[in-house]
């Protein structure tokens, strides 16, 4: 969320190249998101810490969402997919879709479907 708020002004400029300021801002956000990831991990497995009961069941979704945010930021800004040709975006996104499908399929095949039925 914060990523979009801070960098909303880039959309107004359309295809103009980002400036070092933008890059630096993205870097700061990436760093903050990483810190949040580690924080979620720590809170999630330390019963004495505040909010533990709330965070513990949500650690995995939190981590996945934060990691996806970081992924999109690096791909969009540092790899210039935001202003580059859509062809490049397609060359990246479709293999990722297939990659995620492969990982999900294997996890489901090995952990769920078999156990439910035998």
């Amino acid at each position: 969320m914060s990523a979009h708020a801070t960098h909303g002004h880039d959309d107004d400029h359309g295809h103009s190249h980002p400036t070092p300021r933008t890059y630096l801002g993205v870097g700061v956000i990436l760093f903050a998101l990483t810190a949040l990831e580690v924080l979620a991990y720590e809170v999630g497995h330390r019963p004495t810490w505040p909010l533990h009961a709330l965070v513990e069941p949500m650690v995995v979704p939190i981590l996945l969402i934060l990691s996806a945010f970081k992924f999109v930021l690096v791909a969009g800004f540092y790899m210039h997919l935001k202003q580059d040709s859509k062809i490049f975006t397609n060359l990246f996104v479709w293999p990722i879709v297939l990659a995620v499908a492969l990982a999900l399929a294997l996890v489901i095949l090995f952990n769920y479907w078999v156990k439910e039925t035998f």
Binding site: A99, L102, L106, V107
Partner: peptide
């Protein structure tokens, strides 16, 4: 060349997906 490196990156996605999937399984 830029198309090629992006195509290569797309291919590499499946390489790492296989490694990560095995780790998870």
């Amino acid at each position: 060349r830029k198309l090629a490196i992006w195509g290569f990156i797309g291919s590499e996605c499946l390489f790492f997906a296989s490694l990560i999937a095995t780790y998870l399984v």
